Simulated assay, not measured.
Amino acid sequence: MAPTALVVMGVSGAGKSTVAALLAQRLGWEMTEADALHPQSSIEKMAAGVPLTDADRLPWLGLIRDAIAARAAAGESVVVACSALKRSYRDLLRGAEGARVRFVHLDGTPELISSRLHLRTGHFMPPSLLDSQFRDLQPLAADEDGVTVSLDQPPERMAAAALEALGLP
């Protein structure tokens, strides 16, 4: 069986890092925080309230794909917290050689996510960019390997629901 990359996706403030950490802990896999792979220029752009373009995101997504492929080459599965908002972004991530890339879309209303973003501290992504994230968001299609989990429940329940829906222990 090929190593698996479980990409926890959704807009900023959906709880990707929290749920990804829980999934990694339960599965005994390493976790990669995609935000840590952003170039400084992208972090500065977002911190200034400027949405990233596809041209900004493509090199970053390539780094994430390559990190997944490196784990797979080592025979390791990984959980990745990454927005992966558009299908084209997910298609690029699915190109990670040697890995089965699956997605967990954390889905919620703009109102709920906005309330969470306004409580968050210490992150470069300002709440003012949430609308641009929802404009870019393309939910998982029926032919994509993944599940959608509602974020109107505690993170532990979101992780359990994702594992159950994906058939993972």
Rank of each mutant, 00 (worst) to 15 (best):
P3D: 01
P3S: 11
V7C: 08
M9T: 07
S12M: 13
G13A: 01
A14Q: 01
K16Y: 07
K16P: 08
S17G: 14
T18M: 02
V19E: 06
A21L: 05
L23E: 10
Q25I: 00
G28S: 04
M31S: 11
T32N: 02
A34S: 14
D35S: 08
L37H: 09
I43A: 12
M46T: 03
L52E: 11
T53A: 02
D56L: 06
D56Y: 06
L58D: 13
P59Q: 13
I64A: 03
D66H: 14
I68H: 03
A70W: 04
A70K: 15
A70M: 12
A70C: 07
A74E: 15
G75D: 14
G75W: 13
S77C: 11
S77D: 13
V79M: 01
V79F: 05
C82R: 05
K86M: 08
R87A: 05
S88P: 05
L92P: 12
R94I: 08
A96C: 11
A96T: 09
G98M: 02
A99W: 03
A99L: 04
R102G: 05
L106C: 09
G108E: 14
E111D: 14
R116N: 05
L117A: 03
H123K: 03
F124T: 01
F124S: 05
M125H: 01
M125G: 01
P126F: 13
P126I: 14
L130T: 09
D131G: 10
F134D: 04
F134V: 05
R135V: 14
D136A: 14
D136I: 12
Q138P: 08
L140H: 03
E144Q: 10
E144N: 10
G146A: 03
V147S: 12
V149L: 07
S150R: 08
D152T: 11
D152A: 13
Q153H: 05
Q153D: 10
P155W: 09
P155M: 06
E156Q: 14
R157S: 15
M158Y: 01
M158S: 15
M158Q: 15
A159I: 07
A160V: 08
A160R: 01
A161Y: 11
L163M: 12
L166G: 04
L168R: 00
P169Q: 10
